[in-house]
Design a protein around this nucleic acid. Structure first.
Lengths: 162, 162
DNA sequence: GTAAACCTTAGAGTATACTATCAGTCAAGA
DNA sequence: TCTTGACTGATAGTATACTCTAAGGTTTAC
């Protein structure tokens, strides 16, 4: 049983354009063609394409994925190289998730700010709010923002003046 | 105490180019200028800039951040709109984190594949590996990949044949 | 036989976010 | 005074990943 570009696109939630683009970039050399030159995808091609799509989702560029597929084609002598590429990408994804969780914290903080402001009818409600009135998680996030935005050096100097 | 573009860039881990670019896009209208037209950043500008950088990190485009800052400038009548933008962005970041965690699962699966292949000296070791020999977490990931890449319809049809 | 509904490639266009270059202004130090 | 260094805006260039268009080929239904 064979599948066309459009069928594959629908199943993997990509556009047919994107799949042809990946083909043009040399990522789909394993895909067979019929006598008219049309791509015909085998059942076993789906996992390969899914892995490529996953590497893409993980933040790898098409060029990097291409380099990886070249190593795959070279066979067993490149297993260690491939393992190292995957391990490196795991680190990158871990960092990206941390970055997003930090951004999410800021969004949580802003959500709280606006919910309180909405009830009070004005954002001025926050001007002299003591930390004790904030929920503990919000207080922690605010403290982290303060640490990141504060100029340590200036604070140190200020503290050093008797 | 005032700070220059370069000092601010260093403290917020952005390039001076980027900060001027944000200025050009209308994101930094709150920043004062000296008599020569140079940007002079106040201590209170750091948190504003940090929030902008966080929105950027969360995946918002510069255009979207600009729209948000316009609402901020309009004052208390736009609190609900701003809250809704932040809430929507939280959903987007949640989805993005889920997407990355799925990609990470695939990377974990590939790590295991290559570690086993490295020890065996060949990727052929996986050709007839029974699921019982896989660690449970790897088996779960492989099952998820199978569910995503398999054609449900085809399997249903196959099963329907007596 | 011809139109519809697929597929193909090449190549142009788009969006986003920088990133670099350039010519010019200004203040401070030797 | 002159040089150094940091700033300015305008504008051009780059990278990435699509996304679209155009021109053409097959197969199938009527």
């Amino acid at each position: 049983m064979y599948y066309t570009v459009c069928e594959v696109a629908r199943r993997l939630n990509l556009s047919p354009h994107t799949i042809r683009f990946y083909g043009k970039e040399g990522l789909l050399d394993f895909v067979d063609r019929d006598q008219n030159g049309n791509r015909i995808f085998k059942e076993s091609d789906f996992e390969k394409l899914f892995i490529i799509a996953s590497l893409k989702r993980s933040g790898m560029t098409i060029k990097q994925i291409k380099e990886f597929t070249v190593l795959c084609d070279k066979g067993d002598s490149t297993i260690l190289q491939r393992l190292n590429i995957i391990k490196k990408q795991r680190e990158i994804v871990d960092e990206e998730i941390t970055k997003l969780q930090d951004a999410l914290d800021v969004l949580k903080y802003k959500t709280w700010l606006y919910e309180v402001a909405l009830e009070a009818g004005t954002t001025a409600v926050h001007e002299h709010m003591p930390p004790e009135e904030m929920p503990p998680n919000i207080r922690k996030i605010k403290e982290r923002i303060r640490l990141l935005t504060d100029d340590m050096e200036a604070r140190y100097k200020k503290a050093a003046i008797p």
